[in-house]
Design a protein around this nucleic acid. Structure first.
Length: 422
DNA sequence: TCTGGGGTCCTAGGACCC
DNA sequence: TCTGGGGTCCTAGGACCC
């Protein structure tokens, strides 16, 4: 039986989320910016048509934005995460097996089902009607091909948002693959594209036909698998449950550069608190915490410095206070005065499901810590993130991110609900 | 003025062991 | 003169993804 895997991908996801609550922005050029309003991370079709590339720095686009009336929003991840959950929940009803691959896309196992193209159209229409988010669907015999089918569904209006490679005869599929540049393939990035081009492999079809052994020798097992997948052999299985993270990162650029240790300490405490919260949400403990620090590499005229250090904990823990203590020790170790820092971050690693018991455990203290952290998380979940936090984070937070154009959290905050005017 | 944040996987090389 | 062959574990760095 032929394998059938669908890749469902939301169109311009963040832009579509904003438009749900601002229908007046339909058909208008709209971008969503990264943290600190730095780069463009989501573009409406109108903006793509103007030639604005992904990840373009916003400050370079100001003139163009004025000329064409481009509207910019700061990113509102609370809103996007909530809409994403609704989309994924609805899509899960269309297949016994779903892998949520990212905030805006998922794979669905459809092997053995009939009339897949029609089924996918129905799926698309249901999402549009009940949530309002537009999606495209690609169907094929492997994940890599499903990604390409989705690409075709997005780029070629003739397919009306659904492209099923499995129903195309081999020669028509190859004609399509011949027109797709090799860098559009999942797993082929900038560096690999350049090296493939030197070998005259420039299209998806050329890579499909490349000798697997040679690809293996030149590029390694990952790209060899890609070649097999392009030939319709599914090497990558669907992962239904997301495995617990093996590392948890929280790092952010500052709104303004920071030189003094005191403010860096505030940021490190804030990021460690956030990382510890994520850690507890997956019921895990960390045995190491890494702290990193760097100046702004985009300002080469200023003195540059970057460093990182990993601090092992005496025992794995999920206690914000212990993790902060370790992180601050690391920060003081790598901190040098006289630099304008742009970014700091923490990374939790050595993540284990439960702390191994030792002879020296202070069980009472552990239970107390667990109860305190559980209460903290509960309050912050109910009353909003950051309601209760360590004082060391600081109150004024002069270093915090810039988010000038943030939309409201329409779906998760009572006082930010959409208002209907009679 | 102004350039994201959070992940994964693979590989190479060093240290160490028998 | 001559200097093994594997295996494991760890880390750093590269490449890629969204």
């Amino acid at each position: 039986m032929q394998r059938a895997i669908a890749l469902v991908d939301c169109n311009n996801f963040y832009v579509s989320c904003e438009r749900l609550f601002r229908p007046d922005l339909e058909n208008r050029p709209l971008v969503i910016l990264s943290n600190n309003d730095g780069c463009v991370v989501s573009r409406s079709q109108e903006v793509k048509d103007l030639g604005v590339p992904m990840a373009a720095p916003w400050f370079q686009l100001k003139d163009m934005a004025k000329k064409h009336g481009i509207i910019a929003f700061s990113s509102n991840y609370t809103l996007y995460a909530d809409i994403s959950n609704r989309v994924m929940q609805l899509l899960s009803q269309f297949s016994p097996l779903q892998e949520i691959y990212s905030i805006d896309e998922c794979f669905l196992e459809l092997t053995g089902m009939n009339e897949l193209t029609r089924y996918a159209r129905h799926m698309r229409a249901t999402l549009r009607q009940s949530i309002g988010i537009p999606v495209c669907v690609g169907i094929a015999a492997s994940k890599t091909l499903a990604k390409l089918a989705n690409h075709v569904a997005k780029k070629q209006p003739g397919y009306k948002g659904v492209c099923n490679f499995n129903e195309l005869p081999e020669d028509r599929l190859d004609t399509l693959l011949n027109k797709i540049s090799v860098n559009e393939i999942w797993g082929v990035g900038r560096r690999t594209t350049l090296r493939l081009q030197e070998m005259q492999i420039t299209s998806a079809l050329a890579l499909k036909r490349a000798p697997a052994k040679r690809i293996r020798a030149e590029f390694g097992v990952v790209l060899e698998r890609t070649v097999a997948e392009l030939n319709g052999a599914a090497c990558l299985e669907l992962d239904e449950i997301t495995p617990p993270r093996s590392q948890i990162i929280c790092s952010r650029s500052f709104g303004v550069s920071v030189s003094n240790l005191f403010e860096l300490e505030q940021a490190v405490i804030a990021y460690t608190s956030r990382a510890a919260e994520k850690l507890r949400s997956q019921h895990a403990m960390a045995s190491c915490i890494q702290v990193s620090l760097r100046t702004n590499p985009h300002k080469p005229q200023e003195p540059q410095y970057q460093s990182a250090t990993t601090v092992p904990l005496s025992a794995a823990s999920d206690d914000t206070r212990l993790l902060c203590h370790a992180a601050l020790g690391g920060l003081r170790h790598i901190y040098r005065s006289g630099y304008a820092y742009q970014k700091t971050g923490v990374m939790l690693s050595g993540i284990v499901a439960e702390r191994p018991r030792t002879l020296f455990d202070d069980v009472a203290a552990q239970e107390k810590s667990g109860a305190l952290m559980a209460t903290l998380d509960q309050i912050n979940r109910r009353m909003g993130s950051g309601t209760v936090r360590l004082l060391g984070e600081g109150i004024s937070k002069d270093w915090a991110m810039k988010q000038r154009n943030m939309s409201r959290r329409y779906t998760t905050k009572l006082d930010e609900l959409a208002v209907a005017n009679a």
